[in-house]
Design a protein around this nucleic acid. Structure first.
Lengths: 207, 207
DNA sequence: CTCCAATGTAGACAACGGCAACATAGGGCG
DNA sequence: CGCCCTATGTTGCCGTTGTCTACATTGGAG
């Protein structure tokens, strides 16, 4: 599982090579895989390098820092979160209500299915730079745009869109975190709690 | 600031003593102080011990683990969060609406004023044991009881209380986290965004 | 072909979490 | 009173980590 991983290396078809070919990507993928296998894993650069089959200092040719790798990983997470939300959006003819629920469910699902990655995305270790990066803002743009459209079409209560978007965003983020922490389990909080919580907020948004 | 800290030591009034007197409490207080001074501080047991004026292994007489100290610190945070929410509650004659806003604001304020501690409370490092502890559940009980009362008095839409509580809790938790991450700043999201977001949810709760 | 920049390796360092062995205190017991 | 036992603290050590410096190996530009 060493060089057969990517095989999208740029070099010729030679056998084992001294240079990895695309170590940067390999490191990110390895780290994400380890995070998925054990969400509570205490991130160690050396272990990533080990598993990627390189020496423990090789990563420093591609990342300034351990924190830099974490940050890039977090940004990849935001990209994928955005894609997941966009993919869940029904066609352009759908009702706002259905669209809202679909996006919100997709958001929470992403977090619950990638707890390690999701936690990293909002952790301190990723660094403040992540949260100021357009790539993370873009993930929230999905919901913001949806609400903007809804208000333009008069489907939402007249109020600052950004406030409403903030409320939605906080709601899904909060639900996601609490679910991951095991505080939002079915047994604890009811079976359809997620949908009911989402609808409660939705009814506050509607006129 | 060594032995004048607590002075609630059990021993006689002798001068400097070999035994600390109440090292356990001192360690927790020191750790919390360091967390407050630098919310992004990477917790190190040795540094806590150093600052508390003891050797780097002394903490092991009072805590199983680094994680155990973190966990106790997190539980203390939940205690204080609960107290802050209770303290913010107006008298028993107040309207539910005012009560809800007061508690929610107190909750968010606590997080924003103690970002390091708040983050720890919900971090992986604190361990799952924290979130299953009654002391952390009690903090959320404040909001839960408030909503239960509201529903009993018919001030809330008929719906599973636990779902509504979950929605509220997720909302305030989400707002708190996003504010701490700098994603909920006034410039970004509007001046009264917090209140508007809270009211948006409130209107979804009311009949 | 030659040389150079990019990339990867080896070794060292300080700091960390945690263990083991030892030191000190202070109270219960004769 | 003196002894000793347990709780508490200290020193020293180990393996691991992040990161620095020095060196090795490439593959492509000239």
């Amino acid at each position: 599982m060493d060089d057969s991983t990517g095989s999208r290396a740029k070099a010729t078809a030679g056998g084992r090579r001294y240079h990895h070919g695309d170590l940067r990507r390999a490191l990110l993928e390895t780290a994400e895989a380890m995070l998925r296998e054990d969400p509570s894993w205490q991130f160690t650069l050396r272990e990533v390098a080990r598993r990627a089959g390189v020496s423990h200092t090789a990563p420093y040719n591609h990342f300034e820092d351990k924190a830099a790798l974490l940050a890039e990983l977090a940004l990849m997470g935001f990209d994928r979160l955005r894609e997941a939300c966009l993919a869940a959006m029904p066609g352009p003819g759908a009702e706002l209500r259905a669209e809202y629920l679909a996006v919100a469910r997709a958001y929470v699902s992403f977090g619950v299915e990638n707890p390690g990655l999701y936690r990293l995305m909002f952790s301190q270790e990723a660094g403040a730079a992540v949260h100021e990066n357009p790539r993370s803002r873009a993930a929230f743009g999905v919901m913001l745009e949806m609400l903007e459209r809804g208000q333009r079409e008069g489907l939402l209560r007249k109020r600052r869109v950004r406030s409403q978007a903030a409320a939605c965003w906080a709601e899904v983020h909060g639900i996601t975190m609490l679910t991951m922490d095991g505080l939002f389990r079915r047994e604890t909080v009811g079976r359809k709690a997620l949908d009911e919580a989402l609808e409660t907020l939705l009814e506050g948004l509607e006129p």
